[in-house]
Design a protein around this nucleic acid. Structure first.
Ligand SMILES: [Mn+2]
Ligand SMILES: [Mn+2]
Ligand SMILES: [Zn+2]
Ligand SMILES: [Zn+2]
Lengths: 145, 145
DNA sequence: ATATTAGTTGCGACAATTTGCAATAACCAA
DNA sequence: TTGGTTATTGCAAATTGTCGCAACTAATAT
C-alpha cells in the first residue's frame, strides 16, 4: 500500500499537528516494508537513515499515525502489534495462532454484527481492523483443540 | 465468580500438575478481586500474604490457569490483558475505549460468524472470550469518530 | 517416615514499551 | 527574515512482561 504524501501532510497541518522528518521517515518505512510491520523493523530501517531517531519516537509516531487513520494497527497472535498503511476501506484479519499467517477479510463481514450490537446493546463497535484468532486450514490437524 | 477448590485441585493433579500454595493464592486473588483483574493487581494482593512470591510466577500462573480453562483472559482496550474466573460457558466482551467499561455477550452471538469463516475461508476461529472495542452508550457523544 | 522424581518457583538478566522532562524545531504571524 | 508559541523529539528512567537455570518441593512409591 502506498500513500499520498502531500495529502497527508495537509491533513496533519490542518488538524494542528506538525509534519516532521521523523514522521515522514517512519511512514515511508512502514510503506516500504509492506504489510504487518513490527515497531522494531521500522526502527531498524529509519535508524539507518537517522541514527539519532529514538525508539520512543517510533512507538509514539506509530500510535499517532494510527490515531490519524493513516496507519492501521493489527493484533498479532502473540499479543504484539503490527502496522500497515491504512487503505480507504478497513479490512479484518484471521490470524493463525500456530503459523502466524493471516487472511484478510472484507470490511463487510462484520456489518450485520455491528448493527446487532448497536440495536441490542446501544454499543457502537469499532469495526476497523479487527483480528480474529484461530487456526488456518494447514494448521488445524496438527494444533490441539 | 467463585470456584470449587477441591474440584480444581483434583483436575490439576489428574493432569499431572501440582497444587502449590502460589497457585492457590493467585487463584484466590483473582476470585476475590472480581472481574477483569490485571496481573499487577494480583501481584499486589498475593505479595501481602507472601512477599517472596515473584512477578514471574504471577504471570506464569495466570497463563497456566488460563490454559487449564480455570481462568479466562480478556483483552482490554489499551492492549493489556486481564483475567477472570472462567464460567462454565465462555462469553465475549464489548469494551469501551473511552471509559474501559464493558458489556458481556453470550457465547452464541458469534456462532454464525464462526460457521461462515469455517465454510468460506477454511479457518477455524477461536470464539472463546473475544473482545470487541468501541464506545458505550454513555461515551458515544463525547468520543470523536 | 524417607527417598525419588519431575513439576514449579525465585532470581536475575533481558527485551519490549511507556513516560516525564528539558531541549528542539515546525509552524505562523508580523 | 525574524521571533514567539507550542507540538515534538531524545534521553534516560520506569514499567511491563519474558526467559534460562539452579534450587526447591509436591506427589508418589517404598
Ligand atoms: Mn492487513
Ligand atoms: Mn467477562
Ligand atoms: Zn496456520
Ligand atoms: Zn464508555
Amino acid at each position: 500500500m502506498s500513500h499520498n504524501t502531500a495529502e497527508i501532510n495537509r491533513r496533519l497541518r490542518e488538524a494542528g499537528y506538525r509534519v516532521t522528518p521523523q514522521r515522514q521517515l517512519i511512514l515511508d518505512a512502514v510503506c516500504k516494508l509492506g504489510k504487518h510491520v513490527s515497531p522494531d523493523a521500522v526502527y531498524e530501517v529509519v535508524r539507518r537513515n537517522t541514527p539519532s531517531l529514538s525508539r520512543a519516537t517510533v512507538y509514539r509516531t506509530l500510535h499517532f499515525l494510527t490515531e490519524q487513520r493513516i496507519l492501521a494497527m493489527v493484533q498479532m497472535s502473540d499479543g504484539r502489534v503490527a502496522y500497515e498503511v491504512a487503505g480507504p476501506e478497513p479490512h479484518h484479519h484471521l490470524v493463525c495462532r500456530t503459523c502466524d499467517s493471516y487472511l484478510e477479510l472484507p470490511h463487510s463481514v462484520l456489518r450485520t454484527f455491528r448493527q446487532r450490537m448497536e440495536s441490542q446493546y446501544d454499543f457502537e463497535v469499532d469495526v476497523s481492523h479487527v483480528s480474529f484468532f484461530g487456526h488456518c486450514n494447514d494448521c488445524r490437524d496438527t494444533a490441539g483443540a
